[in-house]
Amino acid sequence: MQSRIAFLGLGRMGLPMAVRLAQAGHDVTVWNRTGGRDEPARAAGAQAATSAQEAVQGRRVVITMLSDPDAVLTVLGELTLEPGTTVVEMSTIGPDAVTLLRERLPEHVALVDAPVLGSVPQAEAGKLHIFAGGSAPDIAHCAPVLSVLGHVEHTGELGDGAAVKLVVNVATINAIVLLGEALGLAERLGVGRDVAFDALTRTTLAPLIGVMRPRVGVAEQPALFALGLAEKDLRLALAAGATADGVIGAAQRSLAQGLDAGLGGNDISAIIRRLADGATVHGH
């Protein structure tokens, strides 16, 4: 059944998701804070709006895929949403921001938090894993739309999807930083990069190495997961209660130094190259 959807946010993940929804036959209107990104969505059959308010007019499902909590709260806070609208928040913003969003949205608007596990290739193929938090009826209402994008897992009440996504991202990002530090140690011990990679494939890091090894060797490549977004996710985790002087805090400081070095828009594999080449984390 065709749904009338507003899709707000056409970044690296949002654009292929909007394209898939349009290709599946849904009536999709798209909007992005920065212009000039909607051509692939229009080519797939979506309509482009000149404002977020225009995009949501007459739409019963409003999907947000934006960069951070401030962007989500600002964009949605400026909208007038019609009674019966369901907002599906798919960005990684953490459970506290979901709670704040629920408080700011009118009672006649339903909210589902549904962040995704996966990167650009999974978004393009409709094979994302979607952690959905909210009431069973609200999630069932969105299921025909979300199923176009991947597998939906109902994780619990509103905010639980965002919480699970933070847990997953923390583990993944920390493992990436750990890989960089392990390769940095190998460098200082005189162990060749390929020898170290081969040895590490015999550990629990093997699946991660299979993904990251080819990316570490190429400095210029599309950012499947930007270093700056990874740093933001760890800051969200620390704000949500992760131990500041533990592994998560150390990984966040390492990524923050990568940001200071101008790597924020680079693929997260840039932190592996940086640490493998001898960068160290200073201070707390």
Rank of each mutant, 00 (worst) to 15 (best):
150 G>Y: 12
150 G>F: 13
151 H>W: 09
152 V>E: 07
152 V>M: 11
154 H>E: 14
154 H>Q: 14
155 T>G: 00
155 T>L: 10
156 G>K: 04
156 G>P: 10
157 E>I: 05
157 E>Y: 00
160 D>V: 03
161 G>R: 07
161 G>H: 11
162 A>D: 04
163 A>I: 02
163 A>V: 01
164 V>K: 08
166 L>A: 02
167 V>Y: 04
167 V>N: 05
169 N>D: 04
170 V>Y: 00
171 A>R: 01
173 I>E: 03
173 I>F: 09
176 I>G: 01
176 I>N: 03
178 L>W: 00
179 L>N: 08
179 L>Q: 06
180 G>K: 01
182 A>R: 00
182 A>W: 01
184 G>K: 07
185 L>I: 14
186 A>W: 06
186 A>P: 12
188 R>M: 02
189 L>S: 13
189 L>V: 03
190 G>V: 02
190 G>H: 07
191 V>G: 02
192 G>Q: 09
192 G>C: 04
193 R>H: 13
194 D>V: 07
195 V>F: 03
196 A>Y: 01
197 F>I: 14
198 D>Q: 14
199 A>R: 11
199 A>L: 15
201 T>Y: 08
203 T>P: 05
204 T>K: 00
204 T>M: 10
204 T>E: 05
205 L>F: 13
205 L>S: 09
206 A>M: 13
207 P>Y: 10
208 L>P: 06
209 I>V: 15
211 V>Q: 14
212 M>H: 08
212 M>Y: 13
212 M>N: 02
213 R>F: 09
213 R>M: 03
214 P>H: 11
214 P>A: 11
